[in-house]
Write a protein that binds this DNA or RNA. Sequence first.
DNA 1: CGAGCCGTTGAGGGGATTCAAGCTCAGTGG
DNA 2: CCACTGAGCTTGAATCCCCTCAACGGCTCG
Lengths: 241, 241
Amino acid sequence: MLMKTVPPYLQSENHPQADVCARCEVRSGALFGALDPNSIVRIHADIDDPSLPAETRIYARGEPGTAVYTVRAGIVRFQRLTADGERRIVRLAGRGDLIGQEALLQLPYADEAVTCTPVQLCRIPRQLVGKLGQADSALTHELMRRWQQALEQAGAWAAELTSGVARRRVLKLLGELSRLSGDSDEIWMPRREDMGAMLGLTIETASRMVSQLRREGVLRSLGQRRAVLDADALARALAVV
Amino acid sequence: MLMKTVPPYLQSENHPQADVCARCEVRSGALFGALDPNSIVRIHADIDDPSLPAETRIYARGEPGTAVYTVRAGIVRFQRLTADGERRIVRLAGRGDLIGQEALLQLPYADEAVTCTPVQLCRIPRQLVGKLGQADSALTHELMRRWQQALEQAGAWAAELTSGVARRRVLKLLGELSRLSGDSDEIWMPRREDMGAMLGLTIETASRMVSQLRREGVLRSLGQRRAVLDADALARALAVV
DNA sequence: CGAGCCGTTGAGGGGATTCAAGCTCAGTGG
DNA sequence: CCACTGAGCTTGAATCCCCTCAACGGCTCG
């Protein structure tokens, strides 16, 4: 992991969390990036940074929101059940994204949030943000920016991944997964059932498309939930269809 | 139109816009509902309330945002072009909804916004909200609430309207249109091409489904873009499929 | 080693798309 | 007044793509 250099005044024996926050690789891009170092020192004690294994529920839809989270590493999916009992994944979040923001408004969580990979979070209690927000309008502004970002991503997800033939949807999903995997060519490979819930396809169709792309060399499997992606082949395949 | 009673101190000969704002039927539920009457008086001069015919573009995707709008009446659609040139409608907004919020962050508009019906708007310049937001934290809170509401609606749209067989999607869309038409049984009927862009279907499939529902008595056409909906029949049809 | 989950593949049917032809209706101009 | 026009809607027929049902193989774990 890349660590930021830590100024001396942030190095505290009494507050180990201060170090974690100060060194946090996503801080500059994350929620509290807008805060000055002094504020960081004041809040560190209240912040927890849990590490969760894959397929762990972070919160449920409808649950009263008590905290907001920054994703420090890993991939999180947002899902909900449709009126007829189907599970649909409506969006993914990755490193640097803020999730569960509705907690700040004392609203119940809108979607169920589940880890797709092992995930490192930064858990920020609701009250803490409320307190800071009144003093710090930069934080408020940053929060609104995050909300807009989530809305933009939701729109892009709906526009790009929910129509067209199955092959194209899977290709576009691979592009999205590549983006989330930090521009490495190794990506997290969802279970076929999850791919179906993301794209509105059945398990079998998702499987067929993946197998086909593997035969074409766009994709190469590594173990269970990992694969390497040939970005050029992906681009070419998207251009053709 | 329902009018609110207007307190004397808001009745000003010099500021005709003050009356419009004070009488605004959606004010209590709208963005500035959080403001006290004195603030309302101060801002009215800067606010415009345009009326637009159907099929008018309010703003384009990517355009630098200069204003945020409250929908006072009518229906607005958010659309964008996918990477392969398809038009997708990602969400609808109705009475009381706030649109173009990204302008407040000095970001370009994320989607193209187009009127579906004749629409009455309330146009609020970006600077105005910025000024007020620093003085009034209730306004800031209300803004965040709107953002969350938009995100929730986007999620519901994606989850409910983008998968399942065509018949069910059309039925669910009718339910959504009924909700937007203020619980009257008369709804705005989109063009078939727009229904396709909302549901990820072709014009022909949308047409077939509508015709079928009309034959079943779920729907009765009134002129070009209007229809009456039998809510019970709709509920029954949704339960069966 | 069997159980269970996940992924793969095949066969068949059904639903959506595609291609095509008419239809209605509003607006236009002879 | 009415043929003419064009846009939007409807319907049919054929095709194709995806879903359903089913069987099987690999893998992990008790």
